[in-house]
Computed example of a mutant assay.
Amino acid sequence: MTTVVPDTEVGPLLRVWRERRKVSQLELALRAGSSARHISFIETGRSRPSEDMVLKLAEHLDVPVRDRNALLLAAGYAPRYARTPLDAPALDSLRDGLEHLLRGYEPYPALVVDATYTVVAANRGITMLLDGIPARLLTAPLNAMRITLHPEGLAPRIRNLRAWRRHLLDQMERQLALTRSVALREVYEEVAAYPLPDTYDAADEPAEQPADAGAEYASPSPFALPLRIEHGGTVLSFVSSIATFNTPLDVTVAELAIETMLPADPATVAHLRSLVA
């Protein structure tokens, strides 16, 4: 993944991140225990920040770990964060932990993706949902966005495809606004251009609720948008939760996300447990 920036000096790079986060120089200075004058001098190149200051400003601007390395290099310092391949021995315990977590979540679906939604691990709940998908769409590397929105993938089975598709595209747009990733932009442009499946019928979409909807309009899962997907003649309903690692010190680890699908109704629970039985 590459971040697009208009300059290679650390000052302009920091300004880009500050403006992207919609933070004033004064606010950033207060967060970092500095002064607006010093922040201004750093951004204009009149002052060279120390290594600790670069890291402090990056932390308060919530700069991704990969891009913190770019800031350090632009300031003349060595990168601080390694990028360890996920299959390296150093990450054996991480992989084991993730696999244990995914297995423990079965029969409910769960998977691990990287910064471009490439699937790096998944459990049997996910395999169950992918049953019947053409083999050519399941060749590695498998991309979660591609397999979900492709007209020959899961899309024809998703009963609320319009709403779920908008949710996924909005999610990617928010990430692009923060990271400007070229690789993620390519995935976004690909999946956003997919046509709706030939079998898609807008009449299957649940009607949007009025703004003043009362109890008679209550959704079975009003706390979050559900994914409603058909499997084996049964419509399953899930709500999605995404978790990341807290304070990661490695680029690879920082870009991993664990998505778990929680059943949103008793029928989904019963169906999944019947499959296990």
Rank of each mutant, 00 (worst) to 15 (best):
M53Y: 08
S93R: 14
P49Q: 07
L26V: 14
L149I: 07
Q25G: 14
P109S: 10
A254V: 03
S274T: 15
R95Y: 03
A75Q: 05
P151L: 02
A192Y: 04
T148Q: 03
L262D: 08
S181A: 06
T179Q: 07
H167E: 09
D114F: 01
R15C: 11
L225C: 06
R136L: 06
I133V: 15
S237D: 05
L55A: 06
A88D: 15
A90N: 03
N69K: 04
S50Q: 06
A207Q: 14
S34R: 08
S24V: 05
I126L: 10
D198R: 15
R48V: 13
L61N: 00
G33E: 07
L149Y: 10
L168Y: 03
T252S: 04
A224D: 13
A267R: 12
D131T: 15
T116A: 10
L55Q: 08
S93H: 13
D204L: 11
A257H: 14
A177E: 15
I258S: 07
L227V: 05
R18A: 00
R95L: 09
Q209H: 11
Y188E: 02
I158C: 01
D212H: 12
V191P: 03
G132P: 08
E27G: 03
R37L: 04
P12L: 02
V4I: 14
A110L: 01
P210Y: 05
L72M: 05
L71W: 05
R31S: 11
V5Q: 10
I147D: 01
T244D: 14
T127I: 00
G104D: 05
A78V: 11
L129N: 05
T260H: 01
R103F: 09
E216S: 15
L26T: 14
M1W: 07
A207V: 14
D87P: 01
P266V: 01
M53P: 05
Y81C: 00
P79I: 03
L57K: 01
E106M: 04
L26F: 07
A177M: 09
R157Q: 09
P107Q: 09
A74L: 10
R95H: 06
E216H: 12
E9K: 14
A183I: 08
N69G: 02
